[in-house]
Amino acid sequence: MSDRVFAPLSKRFPDVEFEQVLASQQDVAHVSLEQYVDFVSAARDHGFNVFSDLCGVDYLRRKPRFEIVVNLLSHEHVRRLRIRVGVPAADPTVASITSVFPGANFYEREAFDLFGIVFTDHPDLTRLVLPDDWEGYPLRKDYSVGSVPVRFKGSPKTT
């Protein structure tokens, strides 16, 4: 990538694919599971030291099925960097970046809670937003929304 801001990163990680998507030119880096923590750590050292966001996505029919998307921000370069890591469904385990960004703590817990993605080396990987005894991972695509049929007064089913 010829971009000056990302040059040191792409030099250090030659097989990471950088791209710019959309008309607004958002920078995305596709990283492998093994390089994930090192890449995030290197990004932090090269100016992207503000932790913005971490979320999971379930692509269902794609291999790898899940994806972790990390959003970092750089105050000095005034740029954002989006890091995407594919996580296979057979073993949805990925390293935790709480050692790099403590702010990822709650985000990883939420991804664990709603997707079932396990983060190794996380200080406290428990359910966050759902009750502790909840079964299942709601944001997965094979989990239904859980809507109840709505009945109206006077409709034949209520009588």
């Binding site: 759902l130 709601p138 239904s144 859980g146 809507s147 109840v148 709505v150």
Partner: peptide
């Protein structure tokens, strides 16, 4: 009253 617009797993309807 009824769960409102959020007819899903998370809310008591």
């Amino acid at each position: 009253s009824t769960g409102g617009m959020f007819n899903n797993y998370a809310l008591v309807q």
